[in-house]
């Protein structure tokens, strides 16, 4: 297990370094003069020179890259050109919205998908199964930002139960803040739930055909107990893996959904930074998002190895 852990950790570091290098090359090396990109073609030469100096563009690229990485590790993410505050400060504020949103979306999608997948597999090729599969097909096809708009249309415009967007902040009223995140989290969760329900169903079906399930039934265990005690536990391993793989789509979804609900999260910050061509913020936030995806996949990989002893022995 320790050998596996070390190998996976080394792979994590290499992947993170490659991701950071890719971002740096795209945003700081390929454009030639990032200062000109940020200020536009009509910027005055003295303003450009000042920005170049502030961004340290007179130094070699490798030095800037190492400085940036060092800053990332120590929490010094540089200064935003648009907001005139440190990017760390901006990111910390926005993470307080995006992280709870992502966690809520994962919880909702899991709470919906696992029972649905289980019901579908237990009623294989019956009405319930077909119903769940139909939900899965449609759920995957619905864009989360459109679903968000439909939720606003129904729950805000028509019923008036929720506000159409915005975020009151955790300090003012945590209950209201949670409520403001509910519709966006549901919008984010739907496609995830559809995919997870499908994976749970196929995974449970596979386990149901295993010998140990037949043995459990032959020993006199009821179908319900067999399902809960033996099948579900084993069937959840691939579900966890797919959840990790889906995290990348959750991140992309968060950027869109935050814009639909005008939530001051990391996704909206990135979108605003793009509009303002604030390369400093874009560079940091893109790396944060990418690192989050890589880290979650690493943890899922470890969880998978921990849950499946065969994998540990092989390594």
């Amino acid at each position: 297990m320790i050998l596996l852990l070390l190998r996976r950790f080394a792979s994590l570091i290499v992947t993170l370094l490659l991701a950071s290098l890719a971002i740096f090359v795209v945003l700081e090396v390929l454009p030639g003069d990032p200062a000109a990109i940020m200020l536009g073609t009509e910027a005055r030469e003295d303003t450009l020179a000042a920005l170049r100096q502030q961004m340290g563009l007179d130094r070699p690229a490798y030095e800037r890259y190492l400085d940036w990485l060092g800053g990332m590790l120590t929490g010094d993410l540089g200064l935003s050109m648009t907001y005139r505050v440190s990017v760390s400060e901006l990111v910390a504020d926005r993470l307080a919205v995006t992280i709870p949103l992502a966690v809520m979306a994962i919880l909702i999608s899991t709470a919906l998908a696992v029972p649905l997948g289980l019901i579908a597999a237990a009623n294989h090729e019956k009405v319930a199964d077909r119903g769940v599969m139909l939900f899965a097909q449609i759920g995957v096809a619905i864009p989360n930002f459109w679903f968000g708009l439909l939720l606003i249309l129904f729950f805000s415009s028509y019923l008036g139960w929720f506000s159409a967007g915005g975020f009151p902040g955790w300090a003012a009223n945590p209950a209201l803040a949670l409520k403001a995140l509910l519709l966006p989290a549901i919008a984010l969760a739907l496609p995830q739930a559809a995919i997870l329900a499908r994976v749970t169903r196929s995974s449970v079906l596979e386990i149901l055909g295993e010998d140990f399930v037949r043995t459990a039934r032959a020993k006199g265990l009821t179908r319900r107990v067999t399902l809960h005690r033996h099948v579900l536990r084993n069937a959840l391993i691939p579900v966890v893996t797919v959840m990790g793989m889906q995290f990348s789509f959750l991140v992309a979804g968060a950027i869109l959904v935050e814009n639909v609900f005008t939530l001051p999260g990391l996704g909206r910050l990135l979108f605003q930074a793009m509009s303002q061509r604030d390369l400093v913020v874009i560079k940091d936030v893109v790396l944060l998002f990418a690192a989050l995806v890589i880290l979650v996949n690493f943890l899922v990989d470890l969880a998978y190895a921990w849950l499946d002893p065969r994998l540990r022995q092989r390594t």
């Binding site: 950027i255 990418a290 995806v293």
Partner: peptide, 9 residues
């Protein structure tokens, strides 16, 4: 590495 960059990003 590429998989960590969804199209939106």
């Amino acid at each position: 590495v590429t998989f960590a960059f969804p199209a939106v990003l």
